[in-house]
């Protein structure tokens, strides 16, 4: 359970989050959607203690993220930001291996190696395992980073726009993988998504944000409606039900 209470954050004079409170139960996939600048990524970074709030607090299973020792939290919660510039020259296997650092402290055990192999297989990276990251395509690199946080084997998985750089096939595979991680492995997955139809089809919950506040939260059926999305994005959006999935239309 993640509890966010009265969180405020501003960069310089510009406020990014106003008094955000939210509680996310365990399990399932939660998507954060909303227009640019809504504060989605900031909220995600605050939950994962990558940035420090101006006021308010975040707890994960009752642990205050700013006070809990780093390694303790790193075994419980993993985050992947959208841009991962890597200066270090590493192979895919080495990068994924870093996911085990909170568990092993740098010395890999047999158990760690098994977890690394599982993560590589899960993301179909086994054939690329000994390639250097800088030799991969953008999509492959993105999957390698996801494999790293998966190898971290945490209850909570936070991903900021994980579909960036992925083509349709891999984007779909990624969302299915996240859903199965949530439903089969019992993880709690929170993703920032720009594509509201992926959010609609693969989430258990959607949290919509706008101008640094929570705009609405609920099931896809509650959120993916013409009125709500129209107000959220300030544009006309139609919603059709196709094969039992709610699809937003906004291309015309």
């Amino acid at each position: 359970m993640i509890e966010v209470s009265s969180l405020c954050k501003s960069y310089g004079a510009a406020p990014v989050l106003h008094d955000v409170s939210l509680s996310l139960p365990r399990g399932g996939v939660t998507s954060l959607i909303g227009p640019n600048g809504a504060g989605k990524s900031t909220l995600l970074s605050l939950i994962a203690r990558l940035i420090v709030p101006d006021s308010g607090s975040v707890t994960v299973d009752g642990l205050d993220v700013t006070r809990t020792p780093g390694p303790v939290l790193a075994r419980r919660l993993a985050i992947l930001r959208q841009e991962n510039h890597l200066v270090a020259r590493l192979t895919v296997r080495e990068l994924v291996g870093f996911g085990r650092f909170p568990h092993s402290g740098g010395r890999l055990t047999a158990e760690d190696r098994a977890a690394i192999d599982r993560a590589l297989d899960y993301l179909e990276l086994a054939p690329l395992a000994d390639r250097f990251i800088d030799q991969l395509s953008g999509g492959q690199r993105q999957r390698a980073f996801v494999a790293m946080v998966l190898a971290q084997d945490t209850d909570y998985l936070l991903l900021d726009e994980p579909l960036n750089n992925l083509d349709m096939k891999h984007a779909q595979a990624m969302m299915r993988l996240l859903a199965s991680a949530a439903h089969d492995l019992g993880k709690t997955v929170i993703v920032v998504l720009h594509d509201i139809n992926f959010a609609s089809c693969h989430s258990d919950r959607i949290v919509a944000m706008r101008q640094g506040r929570i705009f609405a939260a609920g099931t896809p059926a509650e959120i993916v409606t013409p009125d709500l999305l129209g107000e959220l994005y300030e544009m006309q959006i139609a919603v059709r039900e196709i094969d039992g999935q709610r699809i937003a239309l906004f291309y015309g």
Partner: peptide, 21 residues
Amino acid sequence: RLSRLDVIALGRPVAVNLGIR
């Protein structure tokens, strides 16, 4: 500290995620 330095070299967001203070 060599292996911890390897983690730090991944940059702040990734290193913090992996539990580096």
